[in-house]
Design a protein around this nucleic acid. Sequence first.
RNA 1: GCGGACGUGGCGAAAUUGGUAGACGCACGGGACUUAAAAUCCCUCGCCCUCUGGGUGUGCGGGUUCGAGUCCCGCCGUCCGCACCA
Length: 845
Amino acid sequence: MASRFNALKADAAWQAVWDERRTFAARDDSPKPRTYVLEMFPYPSGRIHMGHVRNYTMGDVLARFRRMTGHEVLHPMGWDAFGMPAENAAMEKHVHPGGWTRANIATMKAQLKRLGFALDWTRELATCDPDYYGHEQALFLDLFTNGLVYRKESSVNWDPVDMTVLANEQVIDGRGWRSGALVERRKLSQWFLKITDFADELLEGLKGLEHWPEKVKLMQENWIGKSQGLTFRFALSAGGEVEVFTTRPDTIFGASFVAVAADHPIARTVAAANPAAAEFIELCKRGGTTAAELETQEKLGFDTGLRAVHPFDPLGELPLYIANFVLMDYGTGAVFGVPAHDQRDMDFARKYDLPVRRVVSEGDETDPVFRGDEAWTGPGTLVNSHFLDGLDIEDAKRTVIRRAEEEGWGKGATVFRLRDWGVSRQRYWGTPIPIIHCDACGAVPVPREQLPVVLPEDVSFDIPGNPLDRHPTWKHVDCPSCSGPARRETDTLDTFVDSSWYFIRFASQPGNAPFDRAVAEKWLPVAQYIGGVEHAILHLLYARFWTRALQHIGKIDIAEPFAGLFTQGMVTHQSFFSEDAETGRITWYPPDDVVFDGKTASLKASGDTISAGRVEKMSKTKKNTVDPEPIVDQYGADAVRWFMLSDSPPERDLEWSESGIEGCWRFIQRLWRLFDGIEQGEGTDKALDRKTHQTIAGVAADIEALSFNKAVAKLYELVNAIERAGPSASRTAAIRTLMLLVAPMAPHLAEEAWAATGEGSAKEGGLIADAAWPEVDPALLIEDEVTIAIQVNGKLRDTVTVAKGTPRDAIEAIALANANVQRILDGAAPKKVIVVPDRLVNLVA
RNA sequence: GCGGACGUGGCGAAAUUGGUAGACGCACGGGACUUAAAAUCCCUCGCCCUCUGGGUGUGCGGGUUCGAGUCCCGCCGUCCGCACCA
């Protein structure tokens, strides 16, 4: 023996065995407890990157561990295969998006297989497959018939060069991210999903998600943005009225103006008769929407000349402005301004010289004239407010709302920041929206028996725009209702719809339905979902909504799709760049081309000194990516997996390093030497037995908590202990146990060792992947000796090893007799002695 | 501006309810084996000093406590999310 572990050979051999035996295929009818482990499925962009490797390794360790602890594990993989990069590739390389995508899937699947993930490939799916998106169309129509889908005209970001709608996040500084063209606001008819119907449920549901990161729950909470207050109407002097929303009805007597958004109906009416108003509205629309611009942008208003009548008459009339800081799509698109107690209103009032009335007082300041430019938004008592005087803010709010409701000019209201989900995309490579537009019948759903509505293959991407829209035949169909000539909807669904239910399809994929309810409910919710924090809001909120919507219409009785969520950190790497002194142009260099001693960096080829950039997320633009495949070629899958788990806590970033992967590779070889040199020892080594059993328990707890770095550290400790120990039966057992403990992390090595040492042959199948996690002997978890600290005035002076459970007075006696202690106390008796049994003794001098 | 997280050696990091700070790994340094190299093994490794000992040390300044990385108050810094949300 005494050979080297040939990772390349072992990897391929065991991957083939797992494949042939379908070792990781989940059985729906298993009597075992179930665990559904899922990592966010990848977009098939071309090749697997290190972020994927880290993500899938974490899920894999948990999946393999759960199998070993007696669970039936569902751990599937698929492809989030629709999306813009495929169309971009089609435009640039003149290939079909489908062909490009499928080639990428083939490449990436082969790459994933080489990492030895315990995946159930029998359930593989791709969202671009009609068999998947056809069922999605059926679900969309279910939502449609249940009133959860509607069409409305809305203002969107339109890229005039690429001729498509862009999502907000695709607009950078007012320009399309791809074309660089100035984005226009355009009114388009779009399909929306009624996510706002579920706003309260989605918010309340967060409370039950105990195994989600607080951070993500908080982000969703803020995104949903529930506010409670009052909507009420001001009568207008010229007739009509304006409705405003406020969270501070208590400050109603501090109002000094009313303002409406630039695209508010009243603003439009005014503009129709007043060119100056129209001009002002144009000015508002031109304003940028980036964070920096908003921060510096001045509050601007246009006095319409209209006057709003305050509901509590004595204050009389308030001027009505059109203002650039009022948003049409929040609340009612109109506000009443209370300058003393809102900073924006304050800025506005000072600019236009409007009254600033104090109505909330923190101390005994009751002067109605509020001085200074900083609004008071803190707590206080109502003043200068008639019947509200003396109340605290909350009481005053309730009082005003009650009175508004009694008198009929307003009512308590809850407003959400969350808006309905616009799902129309002017794109080819997505799920066709299964609707037919008929001039006579309106929007008619495609009949179920005609699903899937399949994308036509014969399309070209030579000119911008949506190929579906200009396809010669595809969109021309007869109306299913009246058989008259009609048109297919040519928009496709936002790809986030595809990823809103794939986890259900993984659990159950019959041919004739999106899923079998009973089977899906056996597996769901996902026990542990793992992915990047960048999906904290979008994907995770959409998937929660979609699941609740399906529950609402009686398709599945699951409220929350993901019981446990973990957001892993990024894989980072040093970046290098140089900046051209004249043009300021930045050039990035691949780390492989650079010599770097930690301080100065220079190019290998030219010797030119360049700058070391930040250690940051691997990205193509920064050229600091490391392709996993050559690394797997060089070091084997287990070393790469080990690296992904070591050192950094999984939620934090992991810095890629050559020395790090080399260290992992050395450790894999070190393990192999232990396994390979296993011999039958005699006799008991109690200390090693303890270490072994403590490690079994500790590693199990760490894996359950996804603290892989700690599990790895404990395994290193056990290996160190085994290497130091002399031959014994305990040592032999420890090495055998070690094989099982590393099996979830380094499965190829573990299988090889398991087979080579004949461990597996006794059992049917013989794979370590099917072996049970070792049992812990609880008696061995308890130490019989403890090292206790001897402190004087809280400072450590010595340590002493005593039997566990040594009584207090015995410990005190040992401490007083200690040479270091006697020297420091110098004959004096301690004033006080604190003994913490089995931990320490502290003598207070 | 609002919300949140974090700050521990040269580096990544450990440290159950307050109880021996730095486990484990990486890097550096020294040594063994070797003709040599690789591989492997052993040792040192927070900082300072008058070095078989002592002092000091978890971003900074206070506080509580016999005892604080951990709890409280006030700062500083870094990162992330949201952002004119009435």
